[in-house]
Amino acid sequence: MMQTKKSLCNIKGLSEAKVEKICEAAEKVVNLGYVTGNEYLHKRKSVVRITTGSNALDTLLGGGIETMAITEVFGEFRTGKTQLAHTLCVTTQLPLNMHGGNGKVAYIDTEGTFRPERLIPIAERFGLDSTAVLDNIVFARAYTAEHQSNLLYSLAAKMAEEPFRLVIVDSIMALFRVDFTGRGELADRQQKLAQMLSKLSKIAAEFNVGIFMTNHVIADPGGGTFVADPKKPAGGHVLAHAATIRLMLRKGKGEQRICKVYDAPNLPEAESISSSLFCCIQITAGGITDCKD
């Protein structure tokens, strides 16, 4: 029901007549039509919020990383994006009464930055067995944008059989920026990106998992001299509309990092550093934690 009839007809062995019958049968099983607000509110009660390891950041996010949603974190290099991803690999496996997700994690690495040994001290911090933690993470290294997209098909098959709670893509735009060059390929790049983000959104909705993706920033030539920080997240409007929650990380003093809510449907955009929609976190051996200052 989440696929077009055209795409289903491309599957070997499925004719138009078979696709019509499949869709008719699926409509009787799955209701994708109108529901009341109360019915949807009841469905939203199944959303799990996974702790980030920082009380301040959890408060900023209304409890943690949401399932059935796409959370994007962008920032310059060395702002803690990958460290946050590693921390979530562990916290997702915590039981629900410890604000975890009680599920497995899928990690798609596009830049070669995943380090399983980094998870050992983080697991120890939360009192988990590091061997069990690593066994509950499925990892794939993507080398092209097409490979990155195709990995989602096999991942969906795994999710139909095992209890996953989080999908991490670190980072979402790296391979697209390599495989598509120049303005001449920009339209094709954005279309392929939109299709992959649509797959992620459908996986999040169907399996009640959270999608956590990191993103680069790019220089904005039109930012002007008087703009304090003329950088913006890569991916353009396609990525901006696909992400449910967008967070911006920037460097603070030492190992401190400042997180700002850039866009979210349930939170207003922060305007100043004095706003409660900012928080300060730091990177430690045990992953992302609260700032002590």
Rank of each mutant, 00 (worst) to 15 (best):
M1A: 12
M1E: 14
T4E: 15
S7I: 15
L8N: 11
L8R: 13
I11R: 12
I11K: 13
E16R: 11
E16K: 13
A17H: 14
K18D: 07
K18Y: 11
K18F: 00
E20C: 07
E20A: 14
A25F: 11
A25W: 05
K28V: 13
V29A: 06
L32P: 02
G33M: 09
Y34Q: 14
V35Q: 15
T36I: 06
T36H: 10
T36S: 12
E39M: 08
E39K: 01
Y40V: 01
H42Y: 09
K45P: 00
V47Y: 12
V47H: 12
V48T: 11
V48W: 02
I50E: 05
T51G: 03
N55R: 14
L57W: 05
I65R: 00
V73Y: 00
V73H: 00
F77H: 01
G80Y: 01
G80T: 05
Q83S: 08
L84Y: 04
T87I: 02
Q93A: 09
L94I: 12
L96R: 07
M98S: 11
G100W: 04
G101S: 11
N102P: 04
N102D: 15
G103I: 08
V105T: 09
A106Y: 06
Y107G: 03
Y107D: 01
D109G: 01
T110R: 02
T110V: 02
F114C: 02
F114H: 01
R115P: 02
P116R: 01
P116Y: 01
L119I: 04
I120C: 04
P121A: 02
I122P: 02
A123I: 01
E124Q: 10
R125Y: 04
D129P: 03
V133Q: 00
D135R: 05
Y143W: 04
T144V: 04
A145I: 00
Q148I: 00
L155Q: 01
L155D: 03
K158N: 05
M159N: 04
A160Q: 09
P163M: 11
R165Q: 13
V167C: 06
V169P: 07
S171A: 04
S171P: 04
A174K: 02
A174N: 03
T181R: 05
G184L: 09
A187N: 10
Q190F: 01
K192A: 08
K192F: 08
K192Y: 04
L193W: 00
M196V: 00
S198A: 10
K199I: 10
K199S: 06
L200N: 02
E206T: 11
N208A: 08
N208Y: 11
N208F: 03
I211V: 13
N215S: 10
H216I: 04
I218N: 09
P221W: 08
V227R: 15
K231V: 11
K232A: 08
G235D: 05
G235S: 08
G236P: 02
L239A: 11
A240Y: 08
A243E: 08
T244N: 15
I245Y: 05
R246H: 06
L247V: 14
M248Q: 12
G252M: 10
K253Y: 13
G254C: 09
R257V: 14
I258T: 11
C259G: 12
K260W: 13
V261T: 15
A264E: 12
P265M: 09
N266M: 09
E269A: 15
S274P: 09
S276I: 10
F278D: 09
Q282N: 14
T289P: 07
D290S: 12
D290P: 13
D293A: 13
